[in-house]
Design a protein around this nucleic acid. Structure first.
Lengths: 223, 223
DNA sequence: TGGCACAATCAGGAAATTGCTGATTATCTA
DNA sequence: TAGATAATCAGCAATTTCCTGATTGTGCCA
């Protein structure tokens, strides 16, 4: 039989062991190795030449996206599936940009893992259903339409205008609509409009969500 | 046979499935249920009366430490093992303070899980080896020698009541007043009162400030 | 054991904010 | 130069917050 050889890379031993168990119950799939951080993952890939690598994003040494990029460049025959806790659009786009073939949420059903692996082996791109299907085409359209913009890489800088980032920061810092209006010398209505545009773009529709977004994208710190 | 009945509470389906597989390969242990967030965990505990609950810390609705505290109070026959990504001393101490019987890193070897469960069933306290053994004695010494000093901890657990922390978490997770009222089955007016008390106690008078506070005090993550 | 502090619950009503629809002006670009 | 997008603002209904005050239960302690 032609087994699909899989390598698991995740910081957490227990998680790796759990995933390994799940995979070993699936027919046609064999776990040929594990790695406990990003750098080790690259070594194991070189050593084992797996068909598929399951990469956690949050790894020490080298994060999963970084690893994915190098795998795509140096080992093009190896397919990458990102295993992530976050449905965060930024991460998904970033993953696709660096050549990942799959993006699976840790929140997925176990059999999704099997489906994902087999889809990727067939040459398809697999995303967890909860991640909008339009992402890929949107993304591809975006980079083919304006390839130069690519270096703006990840986060907020491609999604929001300068004014919007300015206002997002003020919101996350705790300013009220009225306070922002005074600071920026515009009407409160204008601030409201900006806020709703920001929310629309980010797909986040509550203030706490904006604050968390601002923190994780580095616009402000939580301190 | 006297099986040890275990309940698994973790936000991520895949992780739960993996842990379940691991446990099912261990003799004398049976997984009798799962929960995908803190509140659901309490419901399942009430329903199933497990011997052991494995609680992830980072759960939505109610975080693992909060759940542990309530389990310890309302279901003293149920033992709690915290499953965490972090060896963070604060977390460990907090877990012990709220009555957890075990603190296991997700980075542990699979068989540690078995060891931990069986130790806890025997009435022992189990901590992952990588967590300094001195923690417990240090902690105990500290609280017996100068119990007043407790306020030096300065974290949420002393400043807010359990209910208030619960609501702070929900706020920071983006729930509206109305949504929280429905989830907690109280009136919106009650939520409003809680929120204003929380703000009063913390001296923070805006939602973004609460969110940042919740993040830096570990009640939620920014992800 | 009576009372005190405090937690948790809820209400009324004024005041403030938001959401929604729609509009104007300036700028940049295909 | 037309079309898309950004930044600005308004009206108004609906929702939410803020402030004051009240009730109930519980633990504590003098």
């Amino acid at each position: 039989m032609n087994q699909i050889n899989v390598l698991i890379a995740d910081d957490h031993t227990l998680i790796r062991a759990g995933i390994r168990e799940l995979l070993q119950n699936m027919s046609g799939i064999e776990v040929i190795g594990e790695a406990s951080n990003g750098r080790e993952a690259l070594e194991r890939i070189k050593e084992f030449s797996p068909d598929i690598v399951l990469l956690d994003i949050a790894m020490s040494e080298l994060n999963g996206l970084e690893v994915a990029e190098r795998v795509n460049k140096d080992f093009p025959s190896v397919s990458v599936i990102i295993l992530s806790m976050y449905a965060n659009e930024e991460y998904v786009l970033q993953a696709l940009k660096v050549g990942a073939h799959g993006y699976l949420l840790k929140d997925s059903a176990p059999n999704e893992l099997e489906i994902a692996i087999k889809a990727v082996i067939r040459g398809e791109t697999y995303l967890s259903p909860s991640i909008s299907k339009t992402l890929v085409s949107d993304y591809l359209k975006r980079i083919t339409e304006s390839p130069i913009e690519e270096k703006n890489t990840s986060n907020v800088f491609i999604k929001l205008t300068s004014r919007q980032r300015e206002i997002l920061q003020l919101i996350a810092e705790g300013n009220s609509t009225k306070e922002m209006a005074v600071k920026l010398n515009v009407s409160a209505k204008t601030i409201e409009t900006h806020r709703s545009k920001i929310m629309e773009r980010l797909g986040i529709h509550d203030i706490p969500g904006l604050v968390r977004y601002a923190i994780r994208s580095g616009i402000i710190s939580s301190q």
